[in-house]
Simulated assay, not measured.
Amino acid sequence: MTTPPQGRATEDTWMFPPTEGWSFDQVKHLELPFDWELVDGVIATRGQTNVWHNEVRDGIAGALKAARTQPYRVLNEQCVIVDDRNVAKPDVIVYDPGNLNLLTTPCIPVSKLALVVEVVSPGSRRADRVSKPALFAGAKVPCYWRVELDRDGKLAVHEYWLNADTHSYIPAPMHPVHHDKLVTEVPFPVEIDLNALLEF
């Protein structure tokens, strides 16, 4: 006879984490009426997004899927296990599915990521500009894109590369910020018409 898991969060207790914080195993079964991430052992709600955010997210994911090379795959809104107490759900990821059973894997291990893309919305500015880059750089994800509207209402994509020595992101040397068109060679060659992403 097996002993049932102890200390699992419930729909009534998830907002009261233990001193060391919740682990993913303690919360992964929850069915909450909102989208959430696990941040330092605390369940954090993910804010509502608007139409332009979702159109841009899906447009970037579509362009990456069209350009991807083996072995990479592209997903949006997929949970990523950074560690036992940090489970994020980036807007778009590029990952290597090698040695993963995609039929049973609930979340992608952060070690499989080649690129994280976050589209900044009013409720995610600090996370997308500060805490998420630090989290993914610390986990050695090679590339990070931050996508946001500039003052002219046009898209700007800030491209970052991992500094392997400091485990922090640095602006891409040749093209730190993309306007009008994104052209890069990493994690694979891709060109994205940024203006077209806002034609809706």
Rank of each mutant, 00 (worst) to 15 (best):
N99L: 00
K65R: 07
A196Q: 05
M15R: 12
I108K: 02
R126M: 14
R46P: 00
K181Q: 08
Y95H: 04
A134Q: 05
V39G: 06
T104E: 04
G62Q: 12
L38R: 10
T3P: 00
E77A: 15
A139T: 10
V110R: 02
I43H: 11
A63E: 12
L162F: 11
N54G: 13
I108D: 01
Y72T: 11
V186D: 03
T19W: 11
W22P: 15
M174D: 08
W52P: 01
L198W: 09
P189L: 07
Q48F: 10
V51P: 00
D152H: 09
S131T: 10
Y95W: 10
R68T: 15
T69K: 08
P187N: 07
G62A: 03
D193R: 01
E185R: 05
P173D: 10
V147H: 03
F34G: 09
F24T: 01
T69C: 04
N163S: 14
A172D: 15
V92K: 02
R73D: 15
R73I: 12
D152W: 14
Y72V: 01
S111C: 08
P133N: 13
A164F: 01
D35G: 05
T3M: 02
V116W: 00
D180A: 13
I60F: 05
R73T: 11
M1L: 14
E159K: 03
E31Y: 08
V147C: 03
T13Q: 01
D180N: 13
L149H: 04
D165W: 07
V186K: 01
F16E: 14
A137S: 03
P133S: 14
G47C: 11
T19L: 15
Y144H: 05
K65E: 11
M174E: 12
H179A: 06
T166G: 03
V183Q: 06
V74M: 03
K65D: 12
D150M: 06
E185V: 15
L38H: 11
H158Q: 07
F136A: 03
P133W: 14
P18D: 07
T69G: 02
R126E: 08
V87E: 04
F188V: 04
F136R: 01
G59C: 08
P90E: 14
P5M: 09
A139C: 08
D165A: 12
V94W: 04
V39S: 04
V186H: 02
G138V: 15
D25Y: 09
L75A: 14
H175K: 03
K65P: 00
L32H: 07
W52L: 08
T13F: 11
